[in-house]
């Protein structure tokens, strides 16, 4: 139970960053941290004590394997996380070239 609560604390740290930081790079970092906590909680739910990694040995039978379904979900989510982070970086560098700052409040004031 402690592990789940610690995972949620990591999620809250990321949410705190998204709410309070004003730097675009810091916001991207906070979003990545939220993603990491979600991956970890998905894999923790599927873990089984003394289970094997989900690769079947064709010779033997009747083993305990950990749940492959949350792992498959997290696998696709990790690659999507890379794509979204890279796209956020593209937006950030483009805004920096135009406004010479990463501050989101300044960017909102300097519209146009």
């Amino acid at each position: 139970m402690t592990v789940y609560i610690l995972c949620f604390v990591l999620f809250l740290v990321g949410l705190y960053g998204v709410i309070t930081r004003r730097n675009l790079i810091k916001i991207a970092i906070s979003l990545s941290i939220m993603e990491f906590s979600i991956f970890l909680i998905l894999v923790l739910i599927g873990y089984i004590d003394n289970g094997l990694a989900p690769i079947v040995d064709p010779g033997s039978s009747a083993q305990i394997y950990v749940d492959p379904l949350p792992q498959a979900m997290a696998l696709t989510a990790i690659v999507i996380g890379l794509a979204t982070t890279a796209m956020l970086m593209a937006i950030a560098i483009r805004l920096y070239r135009k406004y010479k700052t990463f501050d989101i409040r300044e960017i909102r004031n300097l519209r146009g």
Partner: peptide, 18 residues
């Protein structure tokens, strides 16, 4: 540690590229 080697390989490469 949680017996997810597929995820470990993907995460270590993706983290480096990020």
């Amino acid at each position: 540690l949680l017996k997810a080697p597929d995820l470990a390989i993907v995460q270590i490469v993706v983290e480096t590229i990020t």
